[in-house]
Structure formats: C-alpha cells, structure tokens
Amino acid sequence: TPKTTVYLGSPYLTFPVYEDGVLEVNHYQTSCKIAFNLVTHQVLCRFESDSIEHAVLPDAFRVGAQRFVRKSGPQGPPVYYKVLYAGKSKVLAQIKGTLQETKREAYRLEEFDGIYTRQERYLIELENKAPQAVTLSRKSVLRVLDHTSDPLPSTTLKNKLTVPELIEAVAAYDG
C-alpha cells in the first residue's frame, strides 16, 4: 500500500508554490510562473501556454518584489542569493530550506513526518569583491566594511543589528 507522508511547511519560497515571475538569462528576460525550492535551490518555470514544469538555471530571477541572483558557476549545485540591497555594494541573503524528519511512532500521536524549516545567512558584497558572510552584529559588519568611521547609525549602540540596520549601514558606506 502506498504510504502517505505529511510534512509541516513547504520546501518552496512561496504559497501558492507557483507565482508570477521573470527569468533573467544572458540579459534576456522571460516571464513565467516560478517555483523556487529552498532545499535544492532548483528553479521551476511554467509558461502559460503549455503549463509543463521546466527545471531552469537562470542567472537571476524575480518573484514578486524579490530578486535572486545565482552565484555559483554552471558546474556544481546552484545557489541563489536574495538581493536585499543593490548599490555600489550589495547585501545578500542566502535562504536554505531543510527538512527535519521526525520519527512517527505507531503508539504516539505525532501529526507530521517532518518539518520544513528555513535559515537565512547574510552576505556583504563590496564592489569587485567576493561576497563575505556576516552575522547580524556591529562587530561583524564593521569588519567587512573596513571603515575608519563607524557608518552605523549612532542611535544603535547595541551590538546586535536588524536586517534593515545592516542594509542602512552598507548604504551609508556606499555614500
């Protein structure tokens, strides 16, 4: 008998899984419905005309207001980074989905066979430099920005930063 497994959450970025989007390949843009799998970083595209699921490897894609860029080469597994800020420098987020499987014991009333979770890590890409991972702390951000004067808003004396504060700091650095 076929076994049905039920997981809490979804491996996909959006719900509904397919949302209106734009693929960017060699500076050309194509509209299609896009599903982005955060576990595998596979991008699926469905055109209105045929509704067939195509696995694609765009240089970048947009879903709604979110834009993702591919950073790995054509070899190796693709990794897409969400663009949070794009000036001279960039602030990127890598969103990684994970399936945590739970053992569903017969005598226990576990509702799910597993849970999809997502983790975000942040990167700063300075002009003509490789992206560098940062944590949401003043120390970590200043290490990458390598700035003599503190570009972070003076009201934030705490060491922990929010994502908007990280973006603000990089935008201030860009001037």
Partner: peptide, 17 residues
C-alpha cells in the same frame, strides 16, 4: 508532493507513495 493548507490552516506538504 502537493503543498496545501490543512484543516487548521497550516501549510503542509503531502507526498504519496
């Protein structure tokens, strides 16, 4: 697999076989 909202409005992924 199918992604949908369950009876409680939670997002779930259901896979068969």
């Amino acid at each position: 697999c199918v992604v949908k909202n369950d009876y409680a409005g939670r997002l779930v992924t259901i896979c068969n076989g």
